[in-house]
Design a binder for these strands. Structure first.
Length: 680
DNA sequence: TTAGTATTCCTTTTT
DNA sequence: GGAATACTAA
C-alpha cells in the first residue's frame, strides 16, 4: 500500500479548533508535554474530544501517525475516534494504531507468533470454543466425572481467565475467590496446563492469550520490547480505570522501553469491569507509579442538566474509595430525575413504552432514547411489550451476532480453512453429522492432528473408516462440501466461501437441527454480503470475534434511515449518551446484583455501574422499579425492595411518581396477557 | 457410542 | 424457566 502524507497538516486550522472547541482544562490536557500524563475525565466532560485532539496535536507537532498507539475500550470507540480524527487531520488518521488491547495484541502477535510457539495463522477462540477445549482439558487431567463436587467447566473457565487477567496463579486465585474449591487446586493447575497444551496443538489463542502472549513477548524477548518501544513513541490509554494488571504491564513496559510517553485517560468512578480483572488502582495509583506524572482534571459536564449531575454526585458520594468528584454541569436547568414505582414488571414495561411513545409523538426520535439495564435478562419483559406495540428497537446485549449457533457453524467452516488444526471448529462441524458424537469427533480430530495437512487427511479412506455405516453418506457430503469451499479461494474471498457454504449440504443441516431455519439462512446470506467487503479471511474472522459491540444484523449492516430505540446493558452503554435514559428494575438483588454483594468492594462496584448508567442521560432520566417480581420458576410474585441506590439519595434531588392502574384488575389482566408475554 | 429424556442447578457484567 | 448435566434405551 502506497502511503501518502499530506504536506500541509493544517496546524493553524487545528489551532482555531483548539480555541473554539476546547475549554481551558481540556486544552491543557490536549497540549500536555511529553512524559506520563493522567487525564481524569468525568462523564460528559469531552473525554473523546480531548483524546482525539491530543492525537491530532501530536501528529501536527511532527509525531508520525503510525507511531501512536491509541487503546480504546471497544472497537466502536476506536472507530469513532479515528473518524473524528480524520475530519481534523485527514487520511493520516488511519495510520494510528487504534483499537482495543485485544485487537492490537492480535495484530502484533501475528508477526511474532513463531517466537511464542504458535503459527501466524492462529485462530482466536471465543468463550464457547474456549469452554469446549477446556472440557477436553478437564478430561485430560481426569477432573470431570469424579463426582458432584467437581467444579463445573464454566466455573473453571472463569477462574482460569480471571487468574490470567490479574497475572496470578490459578491455585492462588481459586483459594481466594472460591475457598470451597481448595481441594481441587492441584487439579486446577493440571487442567490449566492441559488447556495450554490443547491450545498450542490447535494453534488457537483465547481472548486472554492475546494479552498474555503479548506480555510474554515483551518480557521474554528484550529485542521485541525494544522494537515495540521504537514502534510506539506515544501511547494513549482510554478507560484506564478498566485496565487489568496484564494490560498495564504491557503498555508501561513499552513506554519505558521507548520514548516514555504515556497518556492515560479515565474516570475512576466508571470502573465497572472488575469481574474480568480490571484494577481500579491502575488509575488511582498512576501518580505513585510514575513520579512526576502530570494530572489533569476535566470536571465540566457538557452532557447532562444540573439536575441529573446533582443526582449523580449525591449517589457516587456514597462510595468510600475514589478521587473526590467536583462535577459541574455547564447546561441550563432541566427537570428532576423521575423515580417511578410500578405494581409489577409488566406495569413497568407498559409505563416505559407509553412514555417512549408519548415522546415520539412530541417529535423526539426513538434513537434519542435508550433503556439501560443492569442485567440483560431484565430486558425480556420490555422487549415483549415493545414488540407488541410495534416500537422498533435494537438490542445491544445478550447473544452477539457471531455467537448464534448457525453463524458459529459458518465461522467454523471458515476457520478450519484458515487454520486446519483448529480443534474446536473441527469438532463443531463433525458433531453436526448424524451419528457422530463426541467420541467419533475426537477420533477423527486425532487422525487429522497426526497429519501434516489435515484438510487432505479428512478426505482419506482412513477417516471414512472411523465412521459408522449410517454416517458415511453424510460424511462424504461434508468432505465434498469442504473441497468446494476450498475451491473458492476463501483466504482472499471470504464472501464467496460463504456462498459456497450456502450451496452445500449445510442449509439442510440448518433445517434439520435448528428452529426458524429460514431466518438463519437469511442471516448467513447477510453474513456473506458483509464478508464480501473483506479481502482477507483471517481479518474477517478476527474482526468478528474481537468486534465486541456487534450484536446483530442491525449493527453489522447499519441502515441509517431506521430510527431505533436502543436497549442495552449499562456495561455496553459506556461512552454513549441519549436525550432520555430509562433505567428499569432498580430493585435490590437486581441492581445491585445479588451476587456482587458477596464480594468485597462489590457494592461500590455496583454503585459505579449505576453511576455509569445515570450519567448517560442528557436531558431526562427515568428510573423505575416494580414493587413485586416473580420468584423462581412460576411462583407467585414476591415484594421487592427498592434499590439502596435510590434510598440513599436525598429525596429533594428527584421526583417520585407512582403508577395507578386506571382500569380494574380483570381488565388489566386481559390486556397484559395479550400484550406482555414475551415469546423470545 | 449416540440420541433422547429426566433432573438438577443457577440465576451478572465482556474482550 | 432455561441450560448444563446425568441417566437410559437403542
Amino acid at each position: 500500500m502506497r502511503k501518502i502524507r499530506l504536506k500541509s497538516t493544517p496546524a493553524s486550522r487545528l489551532g482555531e479548533h483548539f480555541e473554539r472547541e476546547l475549554n481551558e482544562a481540556q486544552r491543557a490536557a490536549v497540549t500536555a508535554p511529553d512524559g506520563y500524563n493522567l487525564i481524569l475525565a468525568g462523564p460528559g466532560s469531552g473525554k473523546t474530544r480531548v483524546i482525539t485532539f491530543r492525537v491530532a496535536y501530536l501528529i501536527a507537532s511532527g509525531v508520525p501517525a503510525g507511531s501512536i498507539m491509541l487503546v480504546t475500550f471497544t472497537r466502536r470507540a476506536a472507530r469513532e475516534m479515528v473518524n473524528r480524527l480524520e475530519t481534523l487531520i485527514g487520511e493520516q488518521a488511519n495510520h494510528v494504531w487504534a483499537g482495543t488491547f485485544h485487537h492490537i495484541g492480535n495484530r502484533l502477535l501475528r508477526r511474532a507468533a513463531p517466537l511464542l510457539g504458535f503459527q501466524p495463522n492462529f485462530t482466536i477462540l471465543d468463550s464457547e470454543d474456549q469452554l469446549d477445549l477446556l472440557r477436553l482439558a478437564m478430561d485430560d487431567a481426569e477432573m470431570s466425572g469424579t463426582g458432584k463436587m467437581a467444579p463445573r467447566p464454566a466455573e473453571v473457565q472463569h477462574l482460569l481467565s480471571f487468574a490470567a487477567n490479574v497475572d496470578r496463579g490459578v491455585a492462588e486465585v481459586a483459594a481466594e475467590r472460591r475457598p470451597e474449591l481448595l481441594e481441587w487446586a492441584p487439579k486446577l493447575v493440571d487442567v490449566a496446563g492441559a488447556y495450554v497444551v490443547r491450545k498450542r496443538a490447535a494453534n488457537c489463542m483465547d481472548y486472554d492469550d492475546l494479552l498474555l502472549q503479548w506480555g510474554r513477548l515483551i518480557r521474554e524477548f528484550p529485542d521485541q520490547r525494544e522494537l515495540q518501544g521504537r514502534m510506539f513513541r506515544h501511547l494513549l490509554i482510554d478507560e484506564m480505570q478498566d485496565t487489568n494488571a496484564v494490560q498495564v504491564a504491557v503498555v508501561e513496559s513499552i513506554a519505558e522501553a521507548g520514548a516514555g510517553n504515556l497518556t492515560a485517560v479515565g474516570d475512576d468512578a466508571q470502573s465497572i469491569y472488575r469481574f474480568r480483572g480490571a484494577n481500579y488502582d491502575n488509575i488511582l495509583r498512576f501518580a505513585e507509579r510514575h513520579p512526576g506524572a502530570r494530572i489533569f482534571h476535566l470536571d465540566t459536564n457538557y452532557r447532562s442538566t444540573p439536575q441529573i449531575v446533582a443526582f449523580t454526585r449525591a449517589s457516587i458520594a456514597h462510595n468510600r474509595t475514589g478521587f473526590p468528584k467536583e462535577l459541574v454541569s455547564a447546561r441550563p436547568d432541566g427537570v428532576l430525575p423521575l423515580v417511578v414505582s410500578a405494581e409489577d414488571a409488566y406495569d413497568e414495561a407498559v409505563f416505559v413504552c407509553e412514555q417512549i411513545l408519548d415522546e415520539r409523538d412530541r417529535g423526539r426520535a426513538l434513537g434519542q432514547m435508550a433503556i439501560l439495564y443492569r442485567n440483560h435478562h431484565d430486558s425480556i419483559v420490555l422487549q415483549g411489550e415493545l414488540l407488541a406495540r410495534g416500537i422498533p428497537y435494537t438490542v445491544r446485549s445478550g447473544l452477539r451476532f457471531f455467537e448464534q449457533a448457525h453463524i458459529k457453524d459458518v465461522l467454523a467452516f471458515l476457520r478450519i480453512v484458515a487454520n486446519p488444526r483448529d480443534e474446536a471448529s473441527w469438532r463443531r462441524l463433525l458433531l453436526l453429522l448424524p451419528g457422530v458424537g463426541p467420541a467419533k469427533a475426537a477420533a477423527i480430530y486425532e487422525l487429522l492432528a497426526r497429519h501434516e495437512r489435515p484438510l487432505e487427511a479428512i478426505e482419506s479412506a482412513e477417516a471414512m473408516a472411523l465412521l459408522p455405516a449410517k454416517s458415511k453418506g453424510f460424511f462424504a457430503g461434508f468432505v465434498a462440501d469442504l473441497r468446494k469451499l476450498r475451491a473458492t479461494d476463501p483466504e482472499s474471498h471470504p464472501g464467496a466461501a460463504i456462498g459456497a457454504i450456502l450451496r452445500s449440504g449445510y442449509p439442510d443441516t440448518v433445517r434439520l437441527k435448528y428452529e426458524r431455519p429460514d431466518n438463519r439462512i437469511a442471516d448467513i446470506e447477510q453474513f456473506a454480503l458483509l464478508a464480501d467487503r473483506y479481502d482477507s479471511l483471517q481479518r474477517l474472522v478476527a474482526d468478528l470475534i474481537l468486534a465486541g459491540d456487534v450484536y446483530g444484523m442491525d449493527s453489522l449492516a447499519p441502515d441509517e434511515t431506521r430510527d431505533l430505540l436502543v436497549l442495552s446493558t449499562i456495561h455496553q452503554a459506556k461512552g454513549l449518551e441519549w436525550m432520555h435514559v430509562f433505567i428499569p428494575r432498580v430493585v435490590e438483588d437486581s441492581f445491585p446484583h445479588r451476587r456482587s454483594l458477596d464480594e468485597p468492594g462489590g457494592e461500590d462496584e455496583e454503585r459505579r455501574i449505576f453511576y455509569v448508567g445515570i450519567t448517560r442521560a442528557m436531558n431526562e432520566l427515568t428510573l423505575s422499579y416494580p414493587l413485586s417480581l416473580p420468584r423462581g420458576a412460576r411462583g407467585p410474585n414476591v415484594f421487592t425492595t427498592p434499590s439502596r441506590f435510590l434510598a440513599e439519595v436525598d429525596e429533594a434531588l428527584f421526583e417520585r411518581a407512582e403508577i395507578v392502574s386506571g382500569t380494574g384488575a380483570g381488565a388489566d389482566d386481559a390486556w397484559f396477557s395479550g400484550a406482555g408475554r414475551p415469546t423470545i
